[in-house]
Amino acid sequence: MCQKYPSVKWIDRFVQRHPEVALHHPSGIDPKRAQGFNYTIVKKHFEDLESLLKQHDILWENIKGGSLDLVTVIESVCADGTSLHPGFIFAGGVIDRESTEVDPDIVLATSENGWTSDYLCSEWFKQSFIPQVATRNQSGRPIVLIYDGHGSHVTSEMIETAIAHNILLFALPPHTTHRLQPLDVGIFGPMQKAWSKQCEEYSLRTGEGMQRCDVVEEYMKAWEKAFRESTILQAW
């Protein structure tokens, strides 16, 4: 970063200056896991499963597997303390009906793995961000969008669209979002706590983990709670 390379003794001196830093050798797979995953145990597992299915005449559609489903949320918050409707990106190619009924102004999309992409970010920018800020821009002056340097945020299409709608794109310096990104510092901390609490309440209420079809509704409930408690409103 500074065009210089550390000397051989640099690490030793660094550790001496920072006793809170502990050095450890990387560890491989847990020995218990390595022992547990073998042909005999795996074979017996599937034999027991087959026996259970036959004993109770279980249909294939009644066999469920627990898994994690990634959902990406695109957020934007105004410096005056108001928020815009977020965008949600689900993995796969289907959007649950329950998600579409939460709020017609919330943009929903899908991708193969639930991640954002150049295209999806551009579509969120055109279909969600621009219409919302346009209705709130009472002064008619340019809108400034502060964002991190993710590749999907700096495409030529995004830049051209921003220019056409009098929006100024202002990128944060690389590797500084942990301190300079307003949402990371003042919003997402309270949001993470609110979301964890919302998931716990959901589990107690329904007796199961958060379901994909309920993510949008439950997230918006958590967002409202976190937004009210956020210190960023006081700071701005």
Rank of each mutant, 00 (worst) to 15 (best):
G114Q: 11
Q234I: 14
H56M: 09
T116M: 08
R228F: 14
L49W: 07
I95Y: 03
A91F: 02
P131G: 12
Q55M: 14
F14H: 04
L70K: 14
L204A: 06
V216L: 01
E47C: 04
G81H: 08
S203H: 13
T82K: 00
S51Y: 02
M158E: 00
R179D: 01
H18R: 03
D214R: 01
G93I: 07
S152R: 11
Q234S: 10
L23R: 09
F90L: 10
V107F: 05
D118L: 10
W10L: 02
I106R: 03
A235I: 14
V154L: 10
S67E: 10
V216H: 00
V144N: 10
W223F: 11
L120S: 06
V215F: 09
I63D: 02
D69S: 03
D12T: 00
E208M: 13
P174R: 06
D103F: 00
I187H: 01
A226S: 14
I58L: 14
E98D: 09
Q3A: 13
W115T: 06
S230K: 00
L180H: 05
H56F: 15
G151A: 08
G81Q: 12
L68D: 12
E201Q: 11
S117W: 15
E200W: 05
Q198P: 07
G92N: 03
Q211I: 07
W223V: 00
P190I: 08
N38K: 03
G186S: 09
S156E: 11
A79K: 02
R179C: 04
P190C: 10
F170G: 04
D48L: 12
T206Y: 10
T176L: 08
D57M: 09
K193S: 13
D30R: 05
T176E: 08
V185F: 00
D118M: 11
L168C: 10
K64P: 00
V42Q: 10
F37N: 12
N137Y: 02
G93Q: 13
L53C: 14
D184S: 00
D214K: 05
G36M: 07
N166E: 06
R141D: 14
R205D: 03
M210I: 14
L49N: 01
H175F: 03
Y39S: 15
R228P: 01
H45I: 04
E50T: 07
D118S: 09
K44P: 03
H153K: 06
T161A: 08
K126H: 09
E217Q: 08
G209V: 08
V21Y: 02
H25S: 14
K32T: 09
A171T: 04
A194D: 02
I159T: 08
N113W: 02
Y39I: 10
Q16F: 07
F90H: 05
W223P: 01
S83Y: 11
I63F: 06
R228V: 06
I74L: 15
S196G: 12
E208N: 07
V94K: 06
Q192K: 15
M158V: 11
F88I: 13
G189P: 11
V154Q: 06
M210S: 07
L53S: 00
L70V: 05
E200I: 15
D184Q: 05
K43W: 09
R179L: 13
E47D: 04
D105L: 14
Q181Y: 06
D96E: 11
L145V: 06
E101R: 13
S139G: 11
G65M: 09
D214T: 00
T177E: 04
M191V: 03
F14I: 05
I63Q: 03
P19H: 08
G65N: 07
K44C: 12
